[in-house]
Structure formats: C-alpha cells, structure tokens
Simulated assay, not measured.
Amino acid sequence: MACVKFASRFSILCFATSRTLNLNSKIRPFSTVKQTFKAKGKLNDARFGISLIRRFWMSSSSPSQESSEKQTQQVERILDARDDDHGGVMVEMTNESMDAGVFVSLLRASLSHWRQQGKKGVWIKLPIELVNLVEPAVKEGFYYHHAEAKYIMLVHWLPSIANALPASASHRVGVGAFVVNKKNEVLVVQEKSGAFRGTGVWKFPTGVVDEGEDICDAAVREVKEEAGIDSKFVEILAFRQSHKSFFDKSDLFFVCMMQPLSFDIKPQEAEIEAAQWMPYEEYATQPFVQKHELLRYIADVCRTKKDGRYSGFSAVPTITSFSKKKSYLYLNKKDVDS
C-alpha cells in the first residue's frame, strides 16, 4: 500500500500499489492528481469501482509531524454508488476481477459511510464474472434479491426499522392467440413437447412474453413463430391469474384476438407437430376443452366475440410523465368512443 503526501494541508492518498510515489511540494488539485495517476496506470475507477471520501483528523504519527502538520486529510476508497429514488444506493460492479479481501475492505468502509448518511437499502449488482464476491457480501449481511443470466442482484437493509425493500418480480406473463378467419375457422396447433405432447389436443398458439415486449406484440410474434401466419392484434378478450405455477412464481395469461393477414400455414418444425385452420365448433367441442372449466370459459368468450356480442380491451398507445416511454393502455375502446 503506497501513500502520497502533499506538503500543505497534508493529504494522504492510499492506493492499491506497492510503490512509494514522490510528488513535488506544490499543492495540486485532487482531480489533477487523479488524472495523473490514471495516465500512469496507478488509479483506475473502472477497475475498482470506487469513490473517494475525505475525513479530517489531527496527526499523531510522530512529534515532528505533530509540530509541522496541524491537520491531515485522509482519503478513503469506497464502492462507487448512485442514489436511488427511495433513500438507498445502487452499486453496479464492472466485470473486471477483484480480490475478495479488497472487496470486503471496500464494502465495510462503504457500509459505514452509507449508515452515517442515513441510507436505507443498498443494492449491489454483481456480473457473473464476479461470482467470487457473493459469499463475502452475504457474510456482510447481504442476501439474494434476484438473478438473471449475466448478473446477481444482492441487497442489504441498513436501518433498524422493518425492511421496506420491494420483493423481486412475482409474475410471468403469457399469451394465447385466438386467430379466426372469415370462414369461421380458428388457427390451432399441436405441440411436440410440453404437457400436450402426444395428446392429440388442438390448442391456440401460446407463449411467454419476452422481457421488454408488449402483450400485443408477443401475440403477433407467437402466431408467426408457431404457424407462420402474419396477424394483427385486435383485442385482449380475457386474462387469467394463477399462482405457484412456474418456479413458485405467479402467472398472468392473456387471451388475445388476432386478425390473420396471411393464411398459408408453415408450422415451426422444432416445437409444433401440426397446425391447421379448424372450424370453430370442432375446436370448442373437443373433449379436452369441455373437460376443463377454464378452457370452456375461454371458448365461450371467443364464440361470443366472434358473433359480435362481446367487447374486449384494445391497445391504446400512451406516454406517461414518469418514463416518457411509449406503453399501452388496454381498454374497452368501443364503449369509450361511443
């Protein structure tokens, strides 16, 4: 560990290097010194992910220093963080390797600093390359919040009051596509895998909504992927919520009415055994459909919509003042416009 001493107001700056560095006695702004060390490869914020805090204390290292150094300025490294919107901080680590011991030292200093600031929740986003830092963080009081393919999110609640941090995402979203043509035929498929494999059951194209994908767009994509049919989203006819259905998460399933824009079926070879246009009543009277109450309800809703006696929820583009991003409000546009 090397220390850099300034000649006036006596600053001590500690870095992760074994060399002692000499500077002239002229006071240099810290930003200038920081850039100098960056240029020489001695300081790299991107690698260490650090911020710097200054604390003032009276020097007591030696009598000679006490007489010549009235005050020193100690600069400590802490983890680089940004404030969140709820009184906490977010740390996003880079994927550069870091020694667990160095990380623990930074983390402890950071937690002490954030407690003094009155921060609440501390979030640490660790890329998968830094999996070696998970155990040390857990030992310092962090716990798993959620994980994705390339990162783990750890969190720690600092105050002594009840933990108010939000839980991780609790639902998965799926879609089923009711695609009916002018001949009163519905698009149905048989699956090669899953619960319906080998059952002979004909069902609507279904699938899971991708991250960042709107429900209406997911329905269009699933129809294209499974049957090769181009389609246009019309309405959400109904939705179902279930629980403990996928790794103990809840599930939302939206039944979407679609207008076909093409009619030549090209089944997806990897997942679909067969696909066809089927007379609607033939689909609805399948023993499997009649046996399950949920499927009977969906079939009745689709029939009523097909006959023009039901209004679903159209997708209306809108922008909120919070995010300024386009999203969709699903509503009964027919009744609103009337």
Rank of each mutant, 00 (worst) to 15 (best):
K249M: 11
D300W: 08
A227K: 04
A7S: 12
L295V: 01
T94I: 00
L23G: 09
R309M: 07
S8V: 07
G176N: 06
S11I: 09
N22R: 14
T94L: 01
N95R: 07
V138D: 05
V75G: 06
L187I: 00
A177V: 05
P136I: 03
Q286I: 00
Q116G: 14
A299H: 02
F247Q: 13
K26F: 04
F178K: 02
V122Q: 06
S231I: 02
R19C: 06
H145Y: 08
V75C: 15
F239L: 10
D85K: 11
H113Y: 15
S168V: 09
Y144K: 12
H146M: 10
S314G: 15
C302N: 00
A169M: 09
P159S: 02
F233V: 02
A270H: 11
M98N: 07
T32G: 08
L261M: 12
G141Q: 02
H171Y: 14
T36H: 14
L107G: 04
N332M: 07
F142I: 03
R197D: 02
K182C: 04
K224Y: 08
L23W: 11
R309I: 00
V175W: 08
M278C: 01
Q73V: 13
D248K: 15
E235M: 03
Y280I: 00
E213S: 02
Q276G: 08
F247T: 11
A218E: 01
N95C: 09
F288T: 03
W114Y: 11
F6P: 05
K182N: 10
V289N: 08
V186Q: 05
A299I: 06
Q268T: 00
S160P: 05
N184D: 10
C256L: 07
S327P: 02
S51F: 07
L165Y: 12
Q290M: 11
W157N: 01
C3T: 14
E211M: 14
D248Y: 14
K192S: 02
R197P: 00
P317V: 10
A167P: 12
K224T: 00
L106G: 00
V255E: 02
R296H: 04
L126N: 02
K182I: 06
S18E: 14
L261F: 03
K291H: 10
R172P: 00
P279A: 06
T94P: 03
H156L: 15
N95L: 05
G212N: 05
L13M: 09
L133G: 00
P279S: 01
I152D: 03
I27M: 15
E282N: 06
A177T: 04
H146F: 13
L165Q: 10
R108S: 09
Q116I: 12
I12A: 13
P279C: 03
R221V: 09
V188H: 03
D230K: 04
N95Y: 07
A39S: 12
V75P: 01
I124P: 02
P267C: 06
E273I: 02
L252F: 15
K291R: 11
V155T: 11
K119F: 01
S18H: 14
F322W: 12
F263L: 08
M278V: 01
F246I: 14
R115D: 06
V255H: 03
R115P: 04
R55D: 13
E293R: 12
